[in-house]
Amino acid sequence: MVENNRWGNFFAHLVLILGVAIVIFPVYVAIVASTHPPGTFIRGVMPLLPGPNALENYKTVITEGRSRAGTPPIGGMLWNSFVMAMAITIGKLSISLLSAFAIVYFRFPFRIFFFWIIFLTLMLPVEVRIVPTFQVVADLGMLNSFAGLSIPLIASATATFLFRQFFMTVPEELMEAARVDGAGPMKFFKDILLPLSITNIAALFVIMFIYGWNQYLWPLLITTDPEYYTIVMGIQRMVTGGDSEPLWHLVMATVVLAALPPILVILFMQRLFVKGLTETEK
């Protein structure tokens, strides 16, 4: 064992506690700000201790929003974000499971060609091809709809690669046994492969859900109808829309509500999250 240095350990704890404090600080400030009445922000520096207005502020943003600045109630936006995140997650998982299955368990002409088409999506983030993608979605009449919010984002090379890698490690004997027993490909997929991949699916689910929930540019472009605003993009409208100085107490209440769901997902599924992250990217 390497020497155990008490002062070194003390110092390490000190650095970490300070570090954690700095990392948490922005969120702490947001939570504090969301509990204050509007008057606090006119008088000088922002507060560092909670105020008395928490219930009212959250009630206002959830049920009323800021109708004058064109921001709808948060309740609806939270729901939209949830639907979009779930649609993207489930869509990504199902199409990549199917295509990984096809690529690993079948031999057919143009297999490599299809693999490369899927691989290309890795190289084309939405941000670099926004104008033409927007035109395609507009031509298909998918603006202001959940289909438009989710379908263009569900192609995923990463998930396909991960499932392909995992399927390659599944023992050959399982498939031979299934065939001897007379199971067809789809039955094998449903009854053997899917149950085996459940941990991988769950790990990817966490990553994809966060990815979907945090989409920003895409919803910003294709939703003009407040019905379909998602919460992450809605914040930007609150900050810049209307008055010169934003209503910080309401903005921060919205920020807390927007950040909470994905943070909870990570905290409750930390093990799966770490597995999903470190195994998909390497």
Binding site: I210, Y216, I235, V255, A258, A259, I263, I266, Q270
Partner: peptide, 10 residues
């Protein structure tokens, strides 16, 4: 680990 979940805009 949790700041990973916060959207860049937020």
């Amino acid at each position: 680990v949790w700041p990973y979940a916060v959207a860049p805009a937020i």
